[in-house]
Amino acid sequence: MSIKTPTQYSSYHTKVARSRAISEPVWVRWLLVALMLAFLTLFLIVPLVAVFTEALRKGFDTYITALIDPDALSSIKLTLIAAAIAVPLNLVFGVAAAWAIAKFEFRGKSILITLIDLPFAVSPVIAGLIYVLIFGLQGWVGSLLIDNDIKVIFAIPGIVLATVFVTFPFVARELIPLMQAQGKDEEEAGLVLGASGWQILWRITLPNVKWGLLYGVILTNARAMGEFGAVSVVSGHIRGMTNTVPLHVEILYNEYNYAAAFAVASLLAILALVTLVLKSLVEWQSARIAGEQEQALS
């Protein structure tokens, strides 16, 4: 269950003007564009704008106060910690998985690819639940943890685990098709020229997939910082302790403190917008490189 990667799709290649025989009448075109814009406005633009207007409804001072509230700051810190652990872990996994899957043939490969996709198919709530079943009080290792005074559930480790789970496939899903498409000629050339495995990885493979890698990291990061359902199950909602930013938004909202809730939410909305901009830049960049190579070849 993947989103198309920048290499698989780019909506920016040059288009040949379509001949009249195969384009629609002007009024049809206008109608379709208007319908699409109406749909996207209703579902995307209006809610996005609403976040910011609701956040600023009570004025700029209230907005700032909500952001520098200690509980808000600690939730930001926790979210950053969770992302800072989950992103590198899944990055290393993504590179390892893509290396094995794209560069080698082995039995059970397609099953492995499907298994890597599993977390996309699992409801975030269930993602949280399974960790409670293992690390919770009555869980498999629950008593072991209590004896050693280690807290996983309703504590930071649980939040990190849940975040790792929901962002698990992103980097791997970006890298696998990219590295498959690039083949292994360059790696073999490096080998013949005397490079070691790590030298091949660092000097040849990773530079070749850097845009796909970055794309995967951007998606992983966005999801890691924004995850709600899974984290909500394992966090225990302890203010100032185990609240991530999305959970803090929920608490404020449920306390009818709408202005503060939307103020904190606006941070996440800004993060989303930055993500979209970065993502588009990466897409354009890789489309540009692909275009150049295509041109050079022709």
């Binding site: 020229l193 490079a195 850097k210």
Partner: peptide, 24 residues
């Protein structure tokens, strides 16, 4: 070894391609 499709390292200049075997 000279590969059929050359397998030049796309992200390196010509100079760096030739230098690769010495640098590693």
């Amino acid at each position: 070894f000279v590969f059929q499709h050359y397998a030049l390292f796309r992200h390196m200049t010509v100079f760096e391609n030739v230098a690769f075997g010495l640098r590693v």
